[in-house]
């Protein structure tokens, strides 16, 4: 492969897929024309060094490809303030939780305290970074799929600018607005799916596809919380249906939400304490894999617990945010 072909290939790999071949062909033509011009001027073929000079002048492959990229940012300028706000809220809620977990570790560790503290700090750091990574991915996706231009055009001059992205202000905004029907429908679909999964849909699907049974079974802790979990899911579906039919009943919606989240946290704490979620069918099954599955489920449950704790804090704050500044201004 020649120097020019290698260069074009390097640019091509980083181009937007829809235009990749077209731009690469044009780039080939541009470089070829330049080379011919130089050769005509010098009346001899160009040396490898001279070719390198042309390519160097044209730019690094990543830089050249970047000039053609329509979307050169991860999170667009119109979504960025909301992203910063979300990161601030996450840190606001996460740091005290992490501190609480560390204090709890210090108070409850009977032996190997330093090791346990490091373990907790490491876990919390990992979860914090995971939260921020998920948030970034979510906003990057949001930035690509939705423009906030419409929101930025339909603004109210009476808005309180100093508090626009302040936590209090945003919470008041959420409290003063009705339940979105789309959100309620989305939640109902999710909850029905969760209910079906809990009632054994996954096992049915497994059988239906004819896959081999898993090498482990669920630990007894799941059946101990099963009835409460099903009741909680049904109650959550009821709450969303209420939000769908009566979107302005925000106080009742938030209040029931707090109660359900607290009950959910109690179930999660019971599960987190168990530590054992699956047991192997066969005693000879590698214990390392079983341990890894149990640890993964624990990390997943911990993440849900943190999310639920954040949801409780938000719901409580919304409950107490009776009036929004722009709502008053518009009256």
């Amino acid at each position: 492969m020649s120097l020019i072909d290698r260069y074009i290939d390097a640019v091509r790999r980083n181009l937007p897929s829809a235009q990749r071949d077209d731009i690469a062909s044009e780039l080939h033509e541009i470089l070829q024309t330049q080379i011919e011009e130089e050769e005509a001027l010098n009346q001899r073929p160009l040396t490898e060094d001279e070719l390198r000079g042309i390519l160097r002048k044209y730019g690094h492959p990543l830089e050249v490809a970047g000039r053609y990229g329509a979307h050169q940012y991860l999170i667009g300028p119109s979504v960025f303030p909301a992203y910063v706000f979300a990161v601030r809220v996450t840190l606001w809620l996460f740091v005290p939780i992490a501190a609480f977990m560390l204090i709890l570790t210090i108070l409850t560790a009977e032996a190997n305290m330093v090791e346990r503290i490091f373990e907790t700090a490491w876990t919390m750091l990992g979860l914090g970074l995971l939260n921020l990574a998920l948030l970034t991915l979510m906003f990057a996706r949001f930035s690509r799929t939705r423009s906030m231009d419409a929101d930025l055009k339909n603004w109210d001059p009476d808005e309180d600018w100093e508090e626009l992205w302040e936590l209090k202000s945003r919470i008041m905004f959420a409290a003063a607005h009705p339940v979105r029907r789309g959100d309620a429908v989305g939640s109902i679909i999710g909850l029905v799916f969760l209910l079906a999964w809990w009632a054994g849909l996954n096992a049915e699907l497994w059988r239906w596809f004819g896959w081999d049974p898993l090498p482990f079974v669920w630990a007894p802790v799941w059946s101990s919380v099963s009835l409460v979990a099903i009741l909680l899911i049904l109650a959550s579906i009821g709450r969303e249906v209420m939000g769908l039919i009566r979107p302005w009943w925000t106080m009742a919606y938030q209040g029931i939400g707090v109660l359900l989240d607290l009950a959910g946290l109690a179930v999660l704490s019971r599960l987190l304490k168990a530590g054992l979620y699956v047991v192997p069918n066969d005693a000879g099954f590698p214990s390392g894999i079983v341990g890894l599955v149990n640890t993964s489920i624990f990390a997943f449950l911990l993440l849900i617990a943190i999310g639920a704790a954040i949801a409780v804090v938000f719901s409580v704050l919304k409950l107490f945010a009776r009036s929004a500044p722009w709502k008053r201004a518009s009256v």
């Binding site: 235009q19 731009i23 044009e26 780039l27 541009i30 330049q34 044209y58 730019g59 830089e63 050249v64 000039r67 053609y68 329509a70």
Partner: peptide, 14 residues
């Protein structure tokens, strides 16, 4: 320079 011209042509075409 080419690095400016060609992407500009693409943009104007799009």
């Amino acid at each position: 320079d080419e690095g400016t011209l060609y992407p500009l042509l693409r943009r104007l075409e799009s």
